[in-house]
Amino acid sequence: MTPIVLYCPSFHGLGGECAPSQQLVTGGESLDQIQAVLDRGWIVAVPDGENLGITGLGPHTFLAARAAAHVTLDLARAAQALSDSAHSRQSHAPIVLWGYGDGGRAAVWASEQHRDYSPDLDLRGVAAGAVISDPGALARSGHSGPWAALALAGLIGLSRAYHHLPLRHVLTEDGLRVAQQAETLSAAVLLDQYRQPLEHWCKDPHPWDDPVWRYVLDHESRSAAGVPEVPVHLYHGAADKVVPVESGSGLFSEYQRNGVGVSWCEYDANHFRTAVDSIPDVMEALAGFLQGPRAPR
């Protein structure tokens, strides 16, 4: 059976035309990773992410790991069913996951949710770069500076994922207005228009310490995650200013302690350069996973 690669790209925005499916049509999505998969003769499927690609359902639940994992595994199941039908065989196509940035977060959580959510999938392994392992820590360290809009996007995305909770109560009137405007914007526009630190839009300078937010972040932290039963390849840029390298190396150490078959590769590059420089190593890791045994059910 032809292998299937689920490729989860990094954050493009909260709505509008930010869905990878639309970005692929308009030329806004990088094809380097996708082309590398196709050059191997494998099938590639790219999930949009929850609330992207369907009009009126936004904003995207940015940083909500369980939602991202389930969307990824749902698409994997659909791709596997199509592949099985095309080949008219009883065996399932082997699947590997690959993601970067918040896409890496989606990929590792999908591998952790695999056994309970989709044990029918023949998942063989996962490669994930610049993984956002703790959104609370990322918000605290990156709530100001050139990437401040990502903290705002995280607040918006998580408040959409946990819409039954009053999470936007931490915002001022200006903050509520800005959040509503940002719900349909691309990452590029967000970063250009909202350069103020997150506290600028909040009633309190430490919104992530709010009791309701602490509850949400506890559910999005590593303590709420499972343990993959497939091998994992993690990688990160040492000069990454978007997602600090400690985020990925900490996950690597955690997986080691829990007995996961995990490898680590660190590049002397920034966030964006690493995404490209890592492709040959990732492809070799994925090829190795596909030669390995099926994960236990």
Rank of each mutant, 00 (worst) to 15 (best):
G250Q: 10
D210W: 03
W213F: 02
E229L: 07
G237S: 00
L217H: 03
V242A: 14
S247N: 07
E229S: 12
V232Q: 02
P211N: 03
Y255S: 00
V227A: 07
P207Q: 13
Q196F: 02
K241G: 05
L217K: 03
V212S: 05
P244V: 10
A239E: 14
E220M: 03
D204M: 12
E254T: 08
P228D: 06
A224F: 06
A225D: 05
D204C: 15
A238C: 02
R222W: 14
S247A: 09
Y235K: 07
Y255M: 04
H200Q: 08
D218Q: 11
L217C: 04
V242Y: 12
P207E: 03
H236Y: 06
P244Y: 02
D210Q: 13
R222S: 15
H233L: 10
G250C: 07
A238D: 15
Y255C: 09
P197C: 07
V245N: 05
P205H: 03
W213L: 08
C202W: 08
D210S: 04
G237W: 00
P231F: 00
A239V: 15
S221P: 11
V242S: 04
Y215A: 04
G226C: 06
V216N: 13
Q196D: 12
H206S: 14
P244R: 00
D218E: 15
A225S: 14
G250T: 01
R222G: 14
D218P: 02
S223A: 09
P197G: 13
Q196E: 14
D218H: 05
W208L: 13
D240T: 11
Y255L: 01
P197N: 14
P205L: 00
G250S: 07
E246C: 10
S223M: 07
S253I: 15
S223E: 08
H200T: 06
V216M: 14
D210E: 06
P211R: 11
C202D: 12
